[in-house]
Design a protein around this nucleic acid. Structure first.
Lengths: 204, 204
DNA sequence: TCTATCATGTAACCAGTTACATGATTTT
DNA sequence: AAAATCATGTAACTGGTTACATGATAGA
């Protein structure tokens, strides 16, 4: 038995494992299904290089195995993978861990927010309004998907992550609107002088 | 003039640039201030290796420059960096871009949610409850910081990112509670048979 | 037939994390 | 005097993104 290097969980790795639960697949088919089911909104499968690297790591780690190598003359050679015993076990562990344990992934927006004070209140408002507009658009898309406007809806549990994304997007938009209002009304405001003063207090 | 490799924005890179706005600093002092101001909640400065690599890249890219190399005999040698003209310009561009443009960063929780259906409704509820408990704790911490229980509060704009994080955490907790309720009441439920059926419909 | 899109993958590079090192100060 | 923590950094590894390739099919 070969040595299997350890592997840390990632959204894409989890997804590959679960894709193979039902039947063996080749990489492109995994990607196709991920898109078909709309899961490409929650796992980044757009840059396929990452998919291939992830599959490779899973293979090295012994969580998936090569089932066969197909050769259809129209296409390049395709390697079909299947889930191993270890892969089945690990996929469950990862799933529970990722669901139960929140982890700070340091998204870029809050980091940027923490320096918004270097803009003036006016410019800040203008910039946040652009963000709000973009969020309204994604929210519309989500709404359309969830309301079944694009064809009959599958069982609700299969769209639960979309419901989550919608809820979070709506929450961010609400927050943005409230801040924008306060910027407009002047309830939230600052000056560089005031901030320099405060910085002094903190640093001595 | 040397060739400057391009550099993509990241929360940490942005933070380094803004730290140098006021005065030149050495790496450890940047880290110290980031923590002192509580910004370590929104930029990952816990693994310092990343800080050094980021500083190095900013240096290569010509956005920061070496001001001097200090030698205090108590400490290892420390390199002091300062912001360049280009760095000042780029920091503004990045800030506006990161504030105005939402970007999907594919966090792990929604990805995991999309496979929650492979657990039974019972187990799903139990796992989500653990997550909710963890969120309640962070929420308490945030609340304490924002209410000024740890000393006098600086100007509100300097805590805006914390307000954001609180709002998002609260929203996630609310969503979790509603789903947990539906799982408990049976309003949200599924069986493996039903899912297999639906899968068939989609794949043909 | 030209162009777009599907189908498929590789190579090279960029970014982030873990683990390791080491001496000084402060606390117990 | 031992243990903890501060102060500082490097090396090695894991993971993710950009850019490049190439042939097939479908639509205009």
């Amino acid at each position: 038995m070969a040595e299997h290097p350890p592997l840390r969980p990632s959204p894409l790795a989890l997804t590959v494992l679960f894709m193979l639960l039902g039947e063996p697949l080749h990489p492109y088919e995994m990607q196709r299904r991920i898109k078909l089911w709309g899961k490409d909104q929650v796992v980044n499968v757009a840059q396929r290089a990452n998919l291939y690297k992830t599959i490779d790591r899973l293979h090295q780690a012994g969580l998936i195995a090569v089932r066969q190598t197909e050769r259809d003359q129209r296409f390049p050679e395709r390697t079909v993978y299947e889930l191993t015993e270890a892969g089945l076990r690990v996929s469950r562990e990862w799933l529970v861990e990722m669901l139960a344990t929140p982890r700070n992934e340091f998204p870029r927006f809050p980091a940027a927010l923490s320096f918004m004070m270097t803009l003036g209140p006016e410019e800040a408002r203008e910039v946040l309004e652009r963000r709000a507009a973009a969020l309204r658009e994604t929210l519309d898309d989500l709404q359309r998907v969830l309301s079944g406007a694009d064809g009959p809806l599958p069982p609700r549990i299969t769209l639960i992550e979309t419901e989550y994304v919608r809820a979070m997007t709506q929450a961010e938009l609400d927050w943005l609107c409230s801040v924008i209002d306060e910027l407009r009304s002047g309830a939230l405001s600052w000056s560089q002088a005031e901030l320099a003063e405060a910085a002094h207090q903190f640093l001595g």
